[in-house]
């Protein structure tokens, strides 16, 4: 099931104004992604870990969020040391692993995990509704925000329709395997999902028009800056500045 299990909780991080979280998520993620040396990402990793700790999220869930990115990292660890030229560190079955390759793999792993931790602490701690409204207040394109909120609204509806279709297939003794019958069944399932989504879209559009929709979407959410938010702006700016400070040139 899709759920926003990290969003509806309470902690110091959850109480930060969503606009502050969104802006600093963007700044810190990009600063981490663009740095080419170890110093800045390591500092960022510390900052991200601190934020995750302050947000009081269940550690198991946070660890699970790190799995997909690290599967790809594992693949890079298996390939990069052997394809990057440099002085050999060790040999396995006649293949020399280079020191530079190992360093590059380590750097990429730190950066990737740091960015995911920033995402978990700063973005996944708000609902997508709050994210959309924050983006609207920050002058993101209005139609894009509207599209995001519409999609968010119907993702859960369509997911339950999908589960319903899967249950129906199971009732008819459908057992997935690697054969044409399975691919056909899943295709029809996806097709049915699209047909239902399409007819739902027609009804939703009619309902929107009935309520006077003319293309403008009104975000009624009002965010209020509290004193604590200014403190957070200060702390996070400090971190950001420190990262830029230790940023030593040298992209690969």
């Amino acid at each position: 099931m899709i759920s926003e299990e990290l969003a509806f909780r309470d902690s110091a991080v959850h109480r930060i104004d969503p606009r502050v979280r969104l802006v600093f998520a963007l700044l810190l993620c990009f600063a981490t992604a663009l740095s080419g040396s170890f110093a800045a990402p390591l500092l960022a990793l510390g900052c991200a870990t601190g934020l995750v700790a302050l947000s009081c999220l269940p550690l198991f869930t946070v660890a699970r969020r790190l799995v997909p990115v690290n599967i790809f990292m594992l693949f890079l660890w298996l390939v990069l040391p052997f394809t990057h030229f440099g002085e050999p560190a060790f040999k396995i079955m006649g293949l020399a692993a280079s020191k530079q390759g190992i360093e590059l793999a380590a750097l990429v792993t730190i950066k990737a995990n740091t960015i995911v931790l920033f995402m978990v602490a700063l973005v996944s701690t708000m609902s997508v509704a709050a994210l959309g409204h924050a983006a609207h207040r920050l002058y993101f394109p209005e139609k894009l925000v509207h599209l995001l909120l519409l999609t968010y609204r119907y993702v859960f509806v369509l997911e339950s329709e999908y589960r319903q279709l899967v249950r129906a297939a199971k009732m008819r003794s459908f057992a997935p395997a690697s054969n044409l019958h399975t691919y056909k069944t899943y295709s029809y399932l996806a097709g049915m999902l699209l047909v239902r989504a399409h007819s739902r879209a027609r009804r939703v559009h009619q309902a929107m028009v009935c309520r006077g929709f003319s293309g403008v979407y009104h975000c009624l959410d009002s965010f209020a800056f509290r004193k604590a938010d200014w403190v957070w702006v200060g702390i996070l700016s400090l971190f950001f500045m420190a990262m830029i400070g230790v940023w030593i040139e040298g992209p690969y």
Partner: peptide, 22 residues
């Protein structure tokens, strides 16, 4: 707008469908 949003949601859900491959 409604069509694009809801079809986008449908494709999001379709990406949850895992088909076996070997």
């Amino acid at each position: 707008m409604a069509r694009a949003g809801i079809l986008s949601a449908a494709f999001f859900v379709a990406s949850l469908i895992h088909v076996p491959m070997g």
